[in-house]
Structure formats: structure tokens, C-alpha cells
Design a protein around this nucleic acid. Structure first.
Lengths: 337, 337
DNA sequence: CTCAGGCGTTAAAACGTTTCAACATCGAGG
DNA sequence: CCTCGATGTTGAAACGTTTTAACGCCTGAG
């Protein structure tokens, strides 16, 4: 079952030394064509598979990047991951995806494992600010979609404050003065930033701070959005917001679903803005107005930054992209004030 | 930067031998409490991180499972992955996700890499029948959502023929006699099976085989669905199908979007059935009738099967689940014959 | 006082690669 | 005929861990 054929078995079978086999594997040009053929034949015959652990132990490096993602079920992150993978492949590296599922413990376990595996580098969208402060352990780390709290490492992010501002400004321009923001938990930096942006929009428009009701959720999944929808509908009509800004599209989709189920119309009874502009946003029950982020580019840039980490004169960089509002039916103006 | 502190450095720093350090790491109970404390302190002080490559080289095993997924952007697979991960964690293993993105070359590369890494086991939803026949290389492999062509390895699947039959039977019962099936490429076993099921439904209902028009797509993504929608609308109204069965929900969502854009109504002008019942199906523009598969359970079972692989008296098993039709608005009967 | 046995620790041998310096072999140039 | 350089191949050391068998020490029983 596991005779575990090694490089020396191949060598013996081909009548050469193990060094030669290694050469065939790593510098094919340096070995005579005849010998090379013989060795390749032996490899094939014995079904030899190079042992990466040994190779890596010797070499100290590992041809693999890893991306520890916050929620693999969120299409936003899979799009970012695609960008990462493209860049990694161009550099001849493979990508392992790890799903922390917003669980700090899980995240820590994966980080530990990846450090032990001596992967070339780690990209991470951390669960919370605490985990963003991961100790330097020799493996380069780049933060994705999150700013490094202390500037101690590279990061690639999108201006979430601006994003929140864009969304809420749009709602205000559409005449809304009672707005809900749905999102949470507040331990997530992005949620805080997007809320800050929302507040800034209020201020700029001269609205009081209590024009924004914050509905905190326990997570950023569809189910939480449905949940929030029920809470929203439960409010007395006089105090109920006429628009909702959701911290991401999954929440917005859940909210939408919940509205429909409860017989409320979007955008007439409640206008909705999402965040991320995932592919499903445009295909939703009511096509969703959303704040678009450059997903693939986010990932791609992060990977490129990571690859510069072990250049001798490396300085940590912080790239920040601009979000963009995409208006669709979920905020169309149909109301007659 | 990379002093690469090893177990012997720790040993020296703590005034013990490296064997003792290893014991502290692997069998803490066997070493005297006082020594243990001293060693742990040294580990902390030096920032020692165990080198998994060396460990693995020695041990021959690797505490990691991998799942090579067909399309990480498809929520169906991320749900399956969640099931896999849960089962893996219960067994004390971590999970690495690899995205083949329906690309045979990429898939081969990942498989090669994973073999070289000597992962404990590989789960894979293969790109096509060809790649399902991956040679045995010492690492156990289990097929997910696909049947082993030659029974040479374990597999966990769902009865796709039955699924196709359920979907099309439902459409026929709703009075449709010109039905399109959207999906492809036909190199994908599931697409073939689901079409076979559709044909069976026709036969059972006594309809001619040409009641089903097969619209082949180049892939199973949303964009391909939109594309198919345009082709569908391009047909002369007299020959245009009144219902469409899509090989997965992404296609169905794209189709839906395309219909709406072109001013056709669902289900009135075209009834639509999807496949997989992903979370977004229920939140779609028109909530989608779909064929539900036990996603998490699929993954969980596959992982459990994988873990039995190296039991001495192991026999390959083939688990097959039953799909289930979930009826929603996209196939509601509103037409007056 | 001796000895058996338990306990904690250790030296040394693996694991399968890569790499480096050294070594043959051979043809060409002196 | 000898030397030289080029070309191809090799033996052995190293990478950082785990593990096995042996070791020294101490205690308590005889």
C-alpha cells in the first residue's frame, strides 16, 4: 500500500546516484539526455512522487500561499480569492484557502498551522481588530480588506468610511430622513467604518444623529438579514425607518426576503442599499443598489504586496481603493413625499 | 529576520536535550513539571514555531485534508465544504480548499501538489470523467458529488438522474410541453445525468423526445445563464419553450436576470427550475423552484468516508443521496392554457 | 548495604530531499 | 605525451523533527 518509494529507490532502479535523480528533477539541463531518459523512465515505472516535506525542509521555502478568509460562503471573498490566486499563479505559487468562518479560535488554529507549514506568505481578512495584531512569526502576513492597526504590516483595503457615506448620502438625496443601518457585530472594523461614513453623511446633510437607527446583528449572513427584517417590521410605523443601509449584500438580501414575506414592498415601503455588489445583488428579487468594491483587484494587489515582503529593503505599504455606488431598483424613487 | 529557531536552540536555552523539548511538545505528561515549565518558557522567549515539514517528514503523516472544489464561487460547493470541514475538525484535521475553477490543468496541478505534500486525504469534485480516473498514488481520494466511474474509490453523490426527472416532471405536470434544458458542457457527468432524468420524465409522461430542447452552455456560471437567456429569447415565439430546466441555480439566476432585462415575465412567459437550492435561490428576483441536495451532509459523509480509507479491511463504498424538489414562485401556474 | 524498579532525561538514528565540493572521463591544445 | 577545461556524475552533509533504547539517579524493600 505505502511502499513509499523515494529518490534513492529511483536512483538504484536507474543505476545512478540520488544526486543525479535530484538533478533530473530540478535542473534537467545539467544531466546528459540519455541518463535523463533512464531516470524519467524509472520515476514513471516506480510511481515516484516527490516528497514535498523533505524538499521543503531542506530548502526552507514552500511554493504555497494561503488566504485565511472570513467567510467562504460570501461571494465577495471568493471573488477576492480569485484575484489572489491569479496573482499567485503568475508567480508560480499555489493557493490554499482556509475558512475562519468569523471564528477567532478557528482563525488562530489556521494561522498556527500555516506558520508551522512554513508557507511562503499569509493573506488574511481578520475576524476582529484583536486578531489583526497577530504577532510576527517569521512568515510574512498581509491584511486584506482591513487596515493594519499599527502599520506594522502591509494592508490592502477599501475606504469603508467613504463607502458608507456614499450609500447614505444617496438615501438622503432620495428624501429619506429616517434611516436604519443593519450590520454587526461592532467588533468588525468594517462595520464600524461604514457606520462612521453613514454618520458623516448625516452631518454633511445637516440631519441629526438620531436620524440613523443602528440595528446590530450577530453576523453578516443572509439569515441575520432576515432576522433584522423582522425586527424592523416590528417597529411602530411612525418610528419605522423608510430606508435601510446594510453592511453587506448578504444582509441586504436577507432583509429583502423578509420584507417580501411580510408583505412590504421595496423600495416603496423600505429602500435598501447593500454593500460589496456581489454578483447576486443584481439578480435579487429587487435588484440591489450596492457599494461596489474592486474585488479581484483587492486580492491581486494583496498577493503582489505579499510577494515583495522578503525583498531586502521592504517597507510596509498600505493600499486603499475607492468604492463606488451602483444604483439599482431597490432605491428607485417612487414615493410621493 | 529568519534566524529560524529550532528545537535544539530551545533545548540549549532551557538547558535540556532536544528530545526533552520534543517530549514537552508531544507528550507533556511524561516530562517533569519543573522541566516542562522551563522548556515552555524557553519556547515562548525564543518565539519557537514547530517546523511541520520536519515533523511530517519523520512521521509520514500530515494532519491536513484537502478539498479540490470545482467552483469556489458557487455557494453550493462552499456549503459542501462546510460539511467537510466540520467532519475534518471533529477528527482533529484541518482543511485546505483548492479551487480548480473547472480547469483540468489547474486541477491536475493541485492534485500533484497535494500528493507531494502527503496530505492525509483528498476530496475532489472532478472537472470531468477523465480526471475522475486519477491514478492511485498512495494518497486516499474520495469523489464528491460524482460517482466513481470504475468503482475504484469511494464516492458520495446525489441521484442526479432522479433530480432531473423530478424537475421536468414538475414542469410537465404544470402543463408545459415545450421545455428547454440549459446546461453544459456535456463533459460534466452531472449535466448528462440531469438531462437523462429529464428525458426519462418525458418518456414517462408520453411526450416525444423533441419536447426537450437542449441549450448547451460553456459553463455553469451566472454569465452563461444570461447568455442562454438571450439565445432563448432569440427563438421565434412559436418554437420558444415555455419552461426551462437549468443544470444549476447559477444558470437559473442568470436566465432570470436576462428574462427580466428583456421584458419577459417569469413564470408567465417562461417557467424556470434550478438545481442545488442554494441560499440565494429563495432570495432571487422570482423565488426559484429548485432541486435541493443535502449539501452539508454530502461533504460531511465524504470526509468520514475518507477517514476510513486507511483502515486495514477497507472496502470502497458508494453513498448516494436522494434529491428533493422545492417549489417556489418561478414555476407557479398562472397561465390559462 | 544491595538491588529492583520507576522515573526523567538523553544520544543517536532515522525520515527524503537538495547541494556542494570532489571526482572521473574525454577531447583538444601545447 | 602531458595538461587543461569542460562535461557529467557522485558521496556525503545538512535541514529540524520524532523516536527508541539506553542511561543515571533515587527510593524503598529486602
Amino acid at each position: 500500500m505505502k511502499p513509499s518509494v523515494g529518490i534513492r529507490d529511483v536512483a538504484q532502479h536507474a543505476g545512478v546516484s540520488n544526486a543525479t535523480v535530484s538533478n533530473v528533477l530540478n535542473r534537467p539541463d545539467v544531466v546528459a539526455p540519455a541518463t535523463r531518459q533512464r531516470v524519467l523512465a524509472a520515476i514513471d515505472e516506480l510511481g515516484f512522487v516527490r516528497n514535498e516535506s523533505a524538499r521543503q525542509l531542506r530548502a526552507g521555502r514552500s511554493r504555497v500561499l494561503a488566504y485565511v478568509v472570513l467567510d467562504a460562503a460570501n461571494p465577495f471573498f471568493t471573488d477576492v480569492a480569485r484575484g489572489v490566486e491569479d496573482a499567485a499563479r503568475e508567480a508560480g505559487l499555489a493557493l490554499f484557502l482556509c475558512n475562519s468562518a468569523s471564528d477567532g479560535g478557528r482563525e488562530r488554529e489556521y494561522l498556527e498551522l500555516l506558520h508551522e507549514q512554513r508557507v511562503e506568505g499569509i493573506l488574511i481578512t481578520p475576524v476582529d481588530a484583536e486578531s489583526a495584531r497577530i504577532a510576527e512569526r517569521g512568515t510574512p502576513v498581509v491584511l486584506v480588506d482591513r487596515e493594519a492597526p499599527d502599520g506594522a504590516r502591509c494592508s490592502v483595503a477599501v475606504d469603508d468610511v467613504l463607502g458608507g457615506e456614499l450609500a447614505v448620502t444617496h438615501l438622503i438625496e432620495n428624501g429619506h430622513t429616517r434611516i436604519a443601518m443593519v450590520g454587526g457585530p461592532l467588533s468588525i472594523q468594517q462595520v464600524r467604518d461604514r457606520r462612521a461614513g453613514a454618520m458623516r453623511a448625516l452631518t454633511t446633510a445637516g440631519l441629526p444623529a438620531d436620524a440613523l437607527t443602528f440595528l446590530e446583528t450577530r453576523g453578516l449572513q443572509v439569515a441575520e438579514g432576515r432576522n433584522a427584517g423582522e425586527r424592523l417590521v416590528g417597529l411602530p410605523a411612525s418610528r419605522r425607518p423608510t430606508a435601510a443601509f446594510c453592511a453587506n449584500d448578504l444582509l441586504a438580501l436577507g432583509l429583502l426576503q423578509s420584507m417580501t414575506q411580510q408583505g412590504l414592498r421595496v423600495p416603496d415601503d423600505l429602500a435598501v442599499v447593500g454593500y460589496d455588489d456581489i454578483e447576486f445583488a443584481a439578480a435579487a428579487a429587487v435588484p440591489l443598489t450596492s457599494v461596489r468594491q474592486p474585488r479581484e483587484q483587492l486580492g491581486r494587489t494583496a498577493a503582489q504586496l505579499l510577494l515583495t515582503e522578503n525583498e531586502p529593503d521592504h517597507e510596509h505599504r498600505h493600499v486603499k481603493f475607492q468604492p463606488e455606488l451602483v444604483v439599482r431598483a431597490s432605491t428607485a424613487i417612487k414615493r410621493r413625499a
